[in-house]
């Protein structure tokens, strides 16, 4: 890509983040009910209506929406994400505290998904046995239809309760990661494997593959040294999009396995209508998503040199 193309791509990325910020803000403000009321109208606290009003004013909840928008935006631009309404701590701190756990889970989950997808796709397209081929090619469709929460429960049931291989509570850091990573990986690996199988089959039908075979190359050589790289670009594009799944998957996985993390934080914030936390999480998700897709766009031309060429109008 030319410098100009990279710049315009960056501009698009920023625009997407700005739109995500605005969209989230409008939607969160439009929610019926608010976190302030949930917290302070609790009869146990015994606060009067006037006292609640005073607290609301102190939090700035009575300012007009456009002022609040600009205020929040200005804060985000300098890295101040506001304070959680539920427990009063800085949102930035809350996120920073749990981000590493989620990042670890996400990176491992995504890597496992990619490995799983490659394994399925390579075996499905390499196997000579038509029965095995069909079975493996059908696997992604099964994976894709599996609900994450159900998968999590089945994994716990089988590996922890029945086989007793993994402790549900109190396992080591590695042990406690195995099931969540699998839960996260399986549904993401499915579309990846589907695209990869399809791309590999498409590429294998291209005449150049027969030419490579005519050079005396084995099927394995053809698959690994010729087909794989060609099949990668469409898969990479989908991988970028699937990062969105990863965030959604993290919410369920962390909740089911009781792990601290962004997903868990999201779940709690939604339950409490903690608008400030949600706003920050949405923007974080948008940033991750946009950066990932930006990387995909920048990496693709390195894999397929034809994408480098600025297209001449034909």
């Amino acid at each position: 890509m030319t410098g100009r193309a990279v710049l315009s791509r960056l501009g698009q990325a920023l625009l997407v983040i700005a739109l995500a910020f605005t969209g989230a803000f409008v939607l969160l403000q439009a929610l019926p009910g608010d976190a302030m009321l949930i917290k302070f109208e609790n009869p146990d606290l015994g606060l009067s209506q006037a006292e609640i009003e005073a607290i609301r004013a102190a939090y700035g909840a009575d300012t007009p929406i456009w002022q609040a928008y600009l205020h929040t935006l200005a804060g985000f631009l300098v890295g101040d994400f506001g304070y959680s309404i539920q427990n009063g701590t800085a949102v930035g701190g809350l996120i920073a505290e749990v981000l590493p756990q989620t990042a670890l889970l996400a990176v491992l989950g995504f890597t496992t998904a990619v490995l799983l997808a490659v394994l399925i796709a390579f075996t499905a397209t390499w196997a000579r046995n038509p029965w095995l081929r069909n079975l493996l090619a059908a696997l992604p469709s099964v994976f894709i239809s599996v609900p994450v929460f159900w998968l999590a429960m089945v994994l716990i049931q089988v590996f922890s309760f029945q086989l007793g291989l993994i402790k549900v509570i109190g396992g080591g850091p590695v042990e406690s990661l195995v099931l969540p990573v699998l839960t996260l990986a399986v549904p993401i690996s499915a579309p990846l494997a589907q695209i990869l199988v399809r791309s590999i089959e498409d590429v294998q039908r291209q005449p150049f593959v027969a030419v490579v075979r005519a050079k005396g190359a084995s099927r394995w050589w053809v698959l690994t040294r010729n087909v794989a790289r060609n099949a990668l670009v469409p898969t990479l594009t989908i991988a970028g999009v699937l990062l969105g799944e990863l965030i959604a998957g993290a919410v369920v996985t962390e909740t089911v396995f009781g792990r601290a993390g962004i997903g868990r934080l999201t779940e709690q914030a939604v339950a409490n209508q903690d608008v400030a936390v949600l706003q920050a999480i949405v923007v974080l998700a948008a940033v991750v998503f946009v950066v990932a897709n930006l990387l995909v766009d920048l990496i693709s031309p390195l894999i397929d040199p034809r994408l480098k060429k600025t297209v001449r109008t034909a």
């Binding site: 005449p207 027969a210 005519a214 050079k215 005396g216 084995s218 060609n230 894999i303």
Partner: peptide
């Protein structure tokens, strides 16, 4: 297949039909 692979390319060369799709594009 293994013995045949040794023949292909070494003892029989193939010039394909359409050069435009007979080379690995990447």
């Amino acid at each position: 297949d293994k013995a045949m692979r040794d023949i292909r390319g070494r003892r029989i060369g193939l010039v394909p039909q359409d050069p435009n799709n007979s080379l690995n594009p990447v």
